[in-house]
Design a protein around this nucleic acid. Structure first.
Length: 844
RNA sequence: GCGCGCGUAGCUCAGGUGGUCAGAGCACCGCCCUUACAAGGCGGUGGCCGCCGGUUCGAGUCCGGCCGCGCGCACCA
């Protein structure tokens, strides 16, 4: 269908064709063997299990704007694409599937389970990539990576081995966050504190010497079975006499020492703290300080172990709690309601069970220092500022990272055991009888290598040379520590350079009512449905327009504005192409003041857009384009030239302005602009595609302040006269005789007349009405075509406004303090303003 | 508990270094199917700039204190 037959832009019809052309062009896939410098972004790899959500869509739009902008400025761009194996999430998903089939991972065995998971990934794992295509993301689909692909695994094993050799990775029995849901240890960053209503129990432990008892307070009575001491504050005079005595642990019978430790808060609870090194992180620390035994009574399945004693073994923790409280009888001295926070697994949603267990850890202090320095000295810039402070604060107090996970899906830890022998290496050791450590690495361990492992490291590839470091990392703030900080550490350690120059932390998109967007709350909005409804351009524009340094609510309005913009630009193009003769060559050849004006405005929007992209101010990028297209281009320029005969100069200029506008808007709304490029692009760009064409630089020679002033006056005058006509109830179509009695319209009187529907006259008679316009007045000469009463009322309102402003200015200048203390130029400006206002009032 | 941010028209938000800063978009109201677009055009209504004090000739704009909302960090049993 020809352009002139399409009265509106139909995204659903156009988008699939355009995606096809882009992908076929190879534009998104720079030659991997070319080592010349490039400009790259590594996508935060979405989970293979995932479907595109609003966060992905926003981040996709942001990254694509950056990538397209740079591609259209001649950079060799690569948007590194791939997915994350997402250990826990994927394993959980596949286990669920197995359960529905009546089997389990245990039944299948490790090898078969992992195979099954690969098969699952092959079937379902690619959906999100296809969804990114629909968004218009110009990523390198031809070299998609996966954190478990062959090359990536090599990188992970290499890093583990080197860090082990450096002494940064070690194995230890230590307290970890045990997630009973995924049956694995998880890191501190995967734990969320949630407030719950609980009970605080006071329990009496009798002194062994029969002189009394010690009452301790706890929210977890069942852990008393693993108590190995009671602690009081060393300076708490109520209890100093108890220090060194012993108590008998009820139900168990074990004797416990009463120790002194400053951790105990005398004012809290009873002032006496039961110490359970096996099941509480603080007690664990205290226990290690005092050399206390570590007793475990809760197992990895979340049930009481044999060590809890016959009466409790096998019970779930909550059952055990009830039983213990019942069995304690009178020893429970008080039960009060108590609200506090408990640790919840971010992965499974279950309550964390702190347990002592043998895990692999990574020392972070040595790697953290350079990562902190890189941000402090600006080699990595984090935007916005508030996020930089968060990053620094976290790195300053970094703790060891538990990197082993008791899962099957992931990078199995490259450590083998045979008796007391240990082998650490990228390959299994020679000889018989070795068994590999069953655990896998935390998913974030592999993600931390993303910016260089995806480019071929540890080999020295041309891609590494060309695209490392990447330019920008755009991401959500919840993975600033989990991922971003660790990439900086690993990049510095293994590449000797930061992994990216800028980190942009984007908004979180909330539901329209301000709640979190989530499936379980039913508050989620599916970006793909929005694309179906409004088009990818609209969704991209809307998300960019919403984005901010703060969290934002999803705004259907802004998506609608994006859709309107695409349609507006489409129709403006139809109009221009309908006027410009076949064969016209686009060029800036202004022949009238409005031509010089639009060319000058075009330079301004190009410069503004560049500055806003540099500053990651995507909202202003989007709205700046919107305003330019609507106001400058359509409302004014096209209206101003509508009745001009299209000579060669005007045709060339029109086409030039349209082409540059279409190109400039492409990074934000790539589909409609690519569609239009087929008609205005004149075959320019790789494969004739706008995605492969250039956005022309700002042409300073076309900046024209005089033309801008002249047309600003036209806009002011036309708007005012239209307002007057509206109030005076002039027939919309009527042309009124009038004369312009104002300076600055020498070249533009005709334009004002046409757009305000005036018939300029040299008639010297008295005006029937006067309208104040910039630089003077317009005097309407014909009476009878309007309501003089309404007209006079409007005039009076204008006079009132002027009088009020004059009064304000006079008041200010009459204020001795102002005249004496304000800077002279401010006072002078105020005087000038007053004179101007008085002149305007006189004219009316 | 500590830290950070926010509270400006009905809604979503702009408003470096204090002096046309009271704005935009959408919504709303009125008028127009003017041959690019009615998913359009033109015009208009609308705001103790959260509250209370302070600094200043002058404060959405700086300072202090409240109130409300959000986020981050945190080992109080």
């Amino acid at each position: 269908m020809s352009l002139q037959d399409r009265t509106r832009f139909e995204p659903a019809e156009v988008e699939p064709r355009i995606i096809e052309r882009w992908l076929a062009s190879g534009l998104f896939h720079p030659d991997p063997s070319d080592p010349s410098p490039g400009w790259s972004i590594a996508i935060p790899p979405p989970n293979v299990t995932g479907a595109l959500h609003m966060g992905h869509a926003l981040n996709g739009a942001i990254q694509d704007v950056l990538i397209r902008w740079h591609r259209m400025h001649g950079d060799r761009t690569k948007w590194i694409l791939g997915t994350d194996h997402a250990g826990i999430a994927t394993q959980t998903q596949v286990e669920k599937l197995l359960r529905s089939e009546g089997t389990s991972r245990e039944e299948l065995g490790r090898e078969a389970f992992v195979q099954r998971t690969w098969a699952w990934r092959a079937e379902y794992g690619g959906t999100i990539i296809g969804q990114l295509e629909r968004l218009g993301a110009s990523a390198d689909y031809e070299s998609e990576r996966f954190t478990l692909d062959e090359g990536y695994v090599r990188a992970v094993l290499e890093v583990f081995t080197r860090l082990y050799d450096k002494g940064l990775i070690y194995r230890d029995n230590y307290m970890v966050n045990w997630d009973p849901g995924s049956r694995s240890a998880i890191s501190d960053l995967e734990v969320e504190e949630r407030e719950v209503d609980d009970h605080l129990y006071s329990i009496a432990y009798p002194l062994t010497d029969g002189t009394g008892e010690v009452v301790v307070a706890t929210v977890r009575p069942e852990t008393m079975l693993a108590d190995t001491a009671v602690a009081v504050h060393p300076d708490d005079e109520r209890f100093t006499h108890l220090i060194g005595k012993r108590v008998r642990l009820p139900l168990v019978g074990r004797e416990l020492p009463v120790i002194a430790d400053p951790y105990v808060k005398p004012e809290f609870g009873t002032g006496c703290l039961k110490i359970t090194p096996g099941h509480d992180p603080n007690d664990f620390e205290i226990g290690r300080r005092h050399g206390l035994p570590e007793v475990s009574v809760i197992g990895e399945d979340g049930r009481m172990t044999e060590a809890a004693g016959e009466a409790y073994a096998g019970l779930a923790v909550l059952e055990a709690r009830e039983r213990v409280v019942a069995d304690l009888g009178d020893a429970v001295r008080a039960v009060e309601p108590y609200r506090h926070t408990v640790p919840i697994s971010h992965r499974s949603g279950e309550r964390i069970e702190p347990l002592i267990s043998l895990q692999w850890f990574m020392r972070m202090d040595e790697l953290a220092k350079p990562a902190l320095q890189a941000v402090r000295d600006g080699r990595v810039r984090i935007h916005p500022e508030s996020q930089r402070r968060r990053y620094e604060a976290w790195l300053e107090e970094i703790r060891p990272w538990c990197i082993s996970r008791q899962l099957w899906w992931g990078h199995q830890i490259p450590v083998w055991y045979r008796g007391d022998e240990v082998h650490v290496g990228t390959a299994a050791p020679e000889g018989e009888g070795w068994t590999q450590d069953p655990d896998v690495l935390d998913t974030w361990f592999s993600s931390a290598l993303w910016p260089f492992a995806t480019l071929g490291w540890p080999d020295e590839t041309a891609e590494l040379q060309a695209f490392y470091p990447t330019a920008v990392l755009s991401t959500a703030r919840d993975i600033l520590f989990l991922w971003v900080a660790r990439m900086v550490m690993m990049g510095l350690e293994f590449m000797g350079d930061v992994p990216f120059r800028d980190v942009y932390v984007h908004s979180v998109i909330q539901a329209p009512d301000g709640r979190r967007m989530s499936k379980s709350l039913g508050t989620g909005i599916d970006p793909l449905e929005e694309i179906d409804r409004h088009g990818a351009d609209a969704v991209r524009f809307g998300l960019l327009a919403m984005s901010s340094t703060q969290d934002v609510k999803y705004s259907a309005e802004k998506v609608a504005q994006g859709q309107a913009l695409a349609n507006k630009l489409f129709n403006a193009s139809r109009f221009v192409l309908g006027k410009v003769p076949e064969g016209t060559v686009a060029a800036a050849r202004p022949s009238a003041v409005e031509d010089r004006w639009i060319l000058s405005r075009l330079q301004a929007i190009k410069a503004d857009t560049a500055a806003r992209i540099e500053a990651f101010d995507f909202s202003k990028v989007a709205f700046g384009l919107y305003d330019f297209v609507y106001r400058d281009l359509c409302d004014w320029y096209l209206e101003l030239i509508k009745h001009r005969a299209v000579d060669d100069d005007l045709g060339a200029t029109l086409l030039h302005v349209l082409r540059e506008t279409v190109a400039l808007a492409h990074p934000v709304i790539p589909f409609v602009t690519e569609d239009l490029w087929a008609h205005v692009g004149n075959g320019e760009g790789d494969h004739g595609l706008l995605a492969g064409a250039r956005i022309p630089d700002v042409d300073e020679a076309l900046r024209d302040p005089a033309a801008e002033a002249a047309i600003d006056a036209v806009i002011g005058a036309v708007t005012t006269v239209r307002g007057w006509r509206n109030d005076a109830q002039v027939k919309p179509g009527a042309f009124l005789q009038a004369r312009i009695n104002a300076a600055g319209y020498e070249q533009t009187a005709g334009l004002v007349a046409r757009l305000a529907r005036l018939e300029l006259s040299a008639n010297g008679g008295d005006p029937a009405a006067t309208v104040a316009v910039p630089g003077g007045t317009v005097e309407v000469l014909t009476s009878g075509d309007f309501d003089p009463g309404e007209a006079e009322q409007r005039l009076e309102r204008q006079r009132d406004g002027l009088r009020a402003e004059i009064a304000r200015a006079e008041g200010k200048l009459g204020n001795q303090g102002f005249v004496a203390k304000a800077p002279p130029e401010v006072v002078a400006a105020e005087r000038g303003k007053l004179e101007r206002l008085r002149a305007e009032l006189d004219a009316l």
